[in-house]
């Protein structure tokens, strides 16, 4: 069987200095696949990394240019460099690198990142997030995801250092069944490919029922700023549901929740008041107390917690892991084969 024509760098020089000229595409492949170009592109990657490191805005094309170059360089080398022909493991390793690049690119074009907050007992449904960063070709189905926050505990070590977070959640699985589990720290909730992570962002939520005059009561929760980071700013403006009235809500309690001197845990204060202000008027409410406003009646039901979640979607994750594993295995295989021939202490 006839061997396909092969051009190696040594031969290239002979050709350049007077041999018969090989077809243009082979010369092109030899140039594009040259190992010198690999070195140049690797060097070019460094300023791209410096840019990416310094600014979020520089994380796509400055990296894409040298990386695309490397991918083409490699594909050309696969066809033109005889070193690859002889070394299967090396081919697998380099192909895995290209596959990783493609997967990362695909992930960058279809990911979703976001945040949301859920009051204890409330459901996430309809896909509305507090903030999102969605790639152009995001194809997931966040509207289909439903889960509920069933409450959490967070331990604190002395010095108010956050320790384990345990958040009970319930969700509806693909078959429509209700499921429950505990998430937190290393363990996200994964539904429909969306990964929900608990965050340090969590706090207290005074909960009210508002009964508009002649209307039906609605339940509303006011997420006060994250606790304990904003320990002394437990206040927020809140618009009365369905109206334009802005109320100012403050949570007031004296007891120490997180003790810097000993281990403690995030919990609801047992004795608290909620102060509601509307312009010059001011009320101090205890659970069960109500006030009458021009739009209707507002009753303090109690205090709940709320949890902030980070959402992340990237369908490439398992493929990335598998490809990375393949890359490192073939790298090991290549070097094992290469070094086995001679003892280390020869």
């Amino acid at each position: 069987m006839q061997q396909p024509p092969v051009i190696d760098p040594g031969l290239q020089q002979t050709l350049a200095s007077g041999g018969s000229t090989p077809p243009v595409f082979l010369r092109g492949a030899a140039w594009l696949g040259s190992l010198k170009l690999t070195l140049a592109l690797l060097v070019l990657l460094v300023p791209a990394i410096v840019l990416a490191y310094n600014s979020e805005a520089w994380r796509s094309w400055p990296l894409a240019v040298p990386l695309t170059g490397l991918a083409f360089n490699l594909l050309a080398a696969l066809t033109s460099n005889p070193a690859f022909r002889r070394q299967t493991a090396l081919i697998v390793f380099h192909l895995a690198l290209v596959a990783l690049l493609l997967l990362i690119a695909a992930g960058r074009m279809s990911y979703l990142k976001g945040t949301l907050e859920l009051t204890e007992g409330a459901w996430f449904e309809g896909g509305a997030l507090t903030s999102t960063d969605t790639a152009r070709w995001h194809a997931g189905d966040l509207d289909q995801v439903r889960f509920t926050n069933l409450g959490f505990t967070i331990d604190y070590a002395p010095g108010i250092r956050r320790d384990a977070t345990r958040n009970r959640v319930g969700w509806i699985d693909e078959r429509g069944r209700m499921r429950e589990s505990t998430i937190g720290d290393q363990h996200p909730l994964v539904v429909e490919g969306y990964r929900f992570y608990t965050s340090f962002n969590k706090g207290f939520a005074p909960t009210f029922t508002f009964t508009p005059t002649g209307g039906k009561a609605v339940l509303g929760a006011v997420h006060l700023p994250s606790y304990p980071i904003h320990e002394y700013e437990q206040t927020r403006e809140w618009s009365l549901p369905g109206t334009r009235r802005m109320l100012w809500i403050l949570l007031d309690f004296d007891e120490t929740i997180l003790d810097p001197a000993q281990p403690s845990a995030f919990r609801m204060p047992s004795d608290y008041r909620v102060i509601v202000r509307d312009g010059a008027e001011r009320w101090e409410l205890r659970p069960g107390a109500a006030i009458d406003l021009p739009e209707g009646r507002l009753e303090l039901v109690g205090l709940r917690s709320w949890m902030g979640y980070n959402v992340f979607y990237d369908w490439t994750l398992p493929w990335l892991a598998a490809t990375a594993a393949l890359a490192v295995l073939s790298l090991g295989w290549h070097f094992a084969g290469k070094f086995r021939r001679k003892a280390w202490d020869a």
Binding site: P188, F312, G332, F335, F339
Partner: peptide, 30 residues
């Protein structure tokens, strides 16, 4: 060569851990 293999493993396992712990596998942190 050994260093390259283990450095690669370090990056991969670090990315897996970062995905679990911080919800992203890579974020250009220092």
């Amino acid at each position: 060569a050994l260093a390259l293999i283990f450095d690669t493993l370090m990056l991969i396992t670090g990315a897996i851990w970062a995905q679990d712990a911080w919800g992203r596998y890579w974020a250009w942190d220092p």
